[in-house]
Design a protein around this nucleic acid. Structure first.
Lengths: 231, 231
DNA sequence: CAGATGACTGTACGAGCGTACAGTATGCGG
DNA sequence: CCGCATACTGTACGCTCGTACAGTCATCTG
């Protein structure tokens, strides 16, 4: 942020759209302790990371520590329960949905819950004690469906290597979120989406992907030629 | 990796080039214990993460644990020493150097040391207990220099918002490495670059950045219009 | 040779945390 | 009323790991 900059900046990826979450959650007082523990764990994991002590989760849920183990056995099992819940809901959020572009507005109502899910996912990748391969594969599957639809509608240019471009875009999209997160960690996980999605960033992405970045040049040609000789 | 795929894949970012590292390190037996501890710590941190016990580092260096604290005081100070060393050397590696494209070959000789540095950097971002803001800013500075040179040579298309594009590209480049790392963690940090840099990936990046991804369409126009109304 | 300085080690302490165990209260089917 | 499962708590054990402390050995200086 030294030279050439006109304004402060803040970034991220292509928009969410068509967010469809579970109906508004009921009063915490009316939930079973088991459910309260799960939600408290999910929130604590998103806010403080997976190294959060069980004691902190117990306090957040208003129960004792042994009750957590009573219901979930081990901390790992509790985290797995949260993982499953997040995976299921997060993939519904259709990141980078190029179709239905105007549905971006639909998520402006309340970004707090999708934001928690997104932070949880980012933390899962950052932590990576358990394999995130399955999650990533499903993300690519979903992106593939979206891209194929957009391609069929003529909105997307075909690639030399569709699967590789898919992988590249997925890796960049998730990775960008990770970097934004560690560069500027949100105090409250509920504010991550609002913090990270800005018109300036979205405009830059649109600009980047609407025109070629590289101009044709002899240097580029020799470069691409040398690439072809590699593994 | 289910449909539409022709070959297995593996990915990463634009190439390193012009890697200039310190002269080949001398025989470990000839180094002082202090230096051996530093190198052992750097390697262990890269291979096993920053939660590596001092005991493991001591064993790797062939010394006792208290000797580490004798020389470096605390574990945090030891890590800071490694951080400084990596920061200094890693930025010399000129990631995404678009100029001198043919110098890619120059690093094919021995990728093991830059690979360790790169893994260390990725782990720094993944861990993020200390701020990586300074590192990221310097990375952007370096990228800015590179892009300006390439732009002056006519190889790069000017952006609507240069600083934002710079930030976007940096975030994507580092983030992609992070995702590749957690998706497929290398057993040996020395093999990360070779594992992650493939001709197929580089070709996909070249393809992506040499042509527009989005075709003009009415849907895109309404989308970009809605973006302009946001923060 | 005496003393000091620095390199180096073994041991142990203490904090943080997951988890096992024993025990209490509450509600439900006989 | 009795027996029992279920929900829940307090306590404590054991592990991991950073760090402090005391002590040994080698080297250098006066």
């Amino acid at each position: 942020m030294r030279h050439m900059s006109t304004t402060k900046r803040s970034t991220v990826q292509l928009p969410l759209s068509g967010v469809r979450l579970a109906p508004r959650r009921t009063n915490p007082e009316d939930m079973t302790a088991r459910a309260r523990i799960r939600d408290a764990a999910l929130f604590c994991f998103a806010r403080d990371g997976f190294r959060t002590p069980l004691r902190a989760i117990a306090e957040e849920a208003g129960v004792s520590v042994p009750l957590i183990t009573h219901h979930y056995g081990t901390k790992a099992a509790l985290q797995q329960t949260c993982d499953d819940r997040v995976l299921e809901r997060f993939l519904d959020m259709k990141i980078m949905a190029i179709r239905e572009p105007d549905s971006v507005k639909s998520m402006l109502d309340d970004t707090s819950i999708p934001s928690i899910l997104m932070v949880y996912m980012v933390r899962s990748f950052l932590d990576a004690t358990v394999s995130v391969q399955a999650f990533f594969d499903r993300f690519v599957d979903q992106l593939r469906t979206t891209m194929q639809a957009a391609g069929a509608a003529g909105m997307i240019r075909p690639a030399d290597d569709e699967e590789e471009r898919l992988h590249l875009l997925a890796v960049q999209a998730i990775g960008a979120l990770m970097v934004e997160f560690v560069i500027n960690p949100p105090a409250d996980p509920r504010s991550f989406i609002d913090q990270v999605y800005s018109g300036r960033n979205l405009a830059a992405q649109f600009d980047l992907y609407s025109h070629p970045l590289f101009n044709p040049s002899p240097a580029m040609d020799t470069y691409i030629a040398s690439i072809k000789n590699r593994a």
